[in-house]
Amino acid sequence: MIALTQLLGAQTIWLFEQFLGLRSLFWRTVASLLRRRFRRSEVIEHAYNFANKSLLFLFVTMGFVGMIMVFQACFQAQRLLGDMTLIGPAFLQLVIREFAPTIGGLMIATRVGAGIAAEIGSMNVTEQIDALRMNGADPVDHLVAPRILAGVVTMLSLGIFGALFMFLVGGVTAKAAFSVPYSTFFNMGLIKPLDVMSFLNKCVVYGFVIPLVAAHAGFVARGGSEGVGSATTRSVIECSLWILMFDLGIGAFYFILQRAIG
């Protein structure tokens, strides 16, 4: 019991330290973005890399999530309601509010975030970042700001593609396994402007958070190839946690907003 308390305490302190480090990196990045001290061509290059690297992976995972969810939903609807006309629109609503941004974010954290942490981490342990600073180039302008903009672009575009793909796969699954006609399934009647706003909001926030947290993990990497390995591992976990945290926060915000509007 004491050991467990110690473990929890140590993790809390660790989390707090992370938070402080992230906060300072966050403000430096915002300053860099506002002053536009980054190269636009680099943003495009990174976005191109990120998106291409994760497209196939994202489609595979999102496709399977789509199948699983529709399977479960149809089965439950069959059991509880006996009516599957609402499956399509309700599924789309859930995809847009929840699954597309969050599962997509987790996958991009795995694919892109880990890559950023490994890259910046190995630059860090081989003293390339010190070399940058010696040459008067600010690592935040140079390494972090363009990746963050690219992350937002990637997350938005892949989020939209992922959501569409998931909806498509869901429709095909419902037709194949439960003979729900396409015309019934592909119905966007339930989508409200707030749903789309929460979707875009989540994508932008995740797109910002993933590169930020991953870059931070890279900057604090210490000691050779093992340091790079642990930075990579840590970035996956930390990115995922932040995503879940924001998911809950943004979700709650929009829920309250929706209720206030009526």
Binding site: F57, F64, T110, A114, G115, S122, V228, G229
Partner: peptide, 23 residues
């Protein structure tokens, strides 16, 4: 050392795919 990074990356990506497929 670069190989270690690649291995870790391939591992998490492979795991994510396998987890969804198994699920």
């Amino acid at each position: 050392a670069r190989g270690v990074g690649h291995a870790v990356n391939a591992c998490v990506v492979g795991n994510a795919i396998l987890i969804f497929v198994v699920d």
